[in-house]
Design a protein around this nucleic acid. Sequence first.
DNA 1: ATTATAGGTGAACGTACGTTCACCTGCAAG
DNA 2: CTTGCAGGTGAACGTACGTTCACCTATAAT
Lengths: 188, 188
Amino acid sequence: METNHSQKILDFYKDNKRMPVYTEIMKLVGFRSKNAVHKLINKLVEKDILDKDSRGRLIPNNLFGEVPMLGLVEAGFPSVAEEAILDTINLDDYLIKNKAATYLLTVKGDSMIDAGIQEGDLVIAERKDEAKVGDIVIAEVDGGWTMKFFRKKGQVAYLEPANKAYKPIYPEASMHIAAVVKGVIRKY
Amino acid sequence: METNHSQKILDFYKDNKRMPVYTEIMKLVGFRSKNAVHKLINKLVEKDILDKDSRGRLIPNNLFGEVPMLGLVEAGFPSVAEEAILDTINLDDYLIKNKAATYLLTVKGDSMIDAGIQEGDLVIAERKDEAKVGDIVIAEVDGGWTMKFFRKKGQVAYLEPANKAYKPIYPEASMHIAAVVKGVIRKY
DNA sequence: ATTATAGGTGAACGTACGTTCACCTGCAAG
DNA sequence: CTTGCAGGTGAACGTACGTTCACCTATAAT
């Protein structure tokens, strides 16, 4: 029952991106007095499911807004009881450094398959006009857009696919780097 | 300057997982009156950088907490001005359905390399004791932990790696499925 | 039957919140 | 010079917040 209550509070947080106030929790769980909420909250705080700040307002704790991070696959998987959690992270914070310049792109084609990037994956791209050798870049070459490894042969920059079926691209007229790939996301 | 101010508010939101109150914004941007904050906020609201709810409290809008999603790689990349954004998503919400049962694991080894899962990647694993054929599962087989495709030959369940250098695993004594892989994350 | 307790109601209280008012600058236009 | 105005200060106001108090059940143990 209490897990049900805290689940509703979590849902509220997801929808509104802030914690509910007591009158809102009243409606969420079906109470008719703020005092009942107050007693419920105190129990959740004791169980470390929630936290309160110095002014009494609710703040989500780690179990709430973040995902537990375990060790290696080979180390196994914890049961519900013994949670051997190394750390907890927020995926947004983990993946995105410069939020204003970051975009997600859907991958088309198989030219980066050997780098573990498949068709349908999302790539996290940060807008940038220069890249380091070895970066995966999104670039406009001779009028077309593509995603490839950024390489240099001497002073000549070129793009190399991660698929033996394709050949490196040496720009004839122009090459303009639009973004550098910072991450890959795949959802099953 | 105003982008600087809203950046500080965003940072506060990231750190505290809630929006600041006016007195807190005062300290953030160096004002000494709440009224100055009030005028600043109204400007940000007009520019759609922030939103307020009916009680005047701040709520982050899309540009704040979420990441823009563009189309395909081949469609190119927008300049700062012309933002052809299809949608915005929150990565946590996108990737994680059942937060209570979800964990992140670091991948060791190359047995799933042909499925685009490399050593060092993070996998999003949802605790479950049964899997569908074709799922990637984390399982304990004959005492050891492993991540493989879940397959069936007739009624016999077995695990298949995505690497031709390895052979399928037919459990001798026991096989226990601990979790199903729901997603993959790679960070460069 | 009596008592204790967990869990709820409803009203009252202190306070921190966003808002508003009057006022004070510094700077640019006329 | 003076006028207007954007942008700040500081104090006052109404209200919504979390908290607390007294009281009311059900349920279970004695």
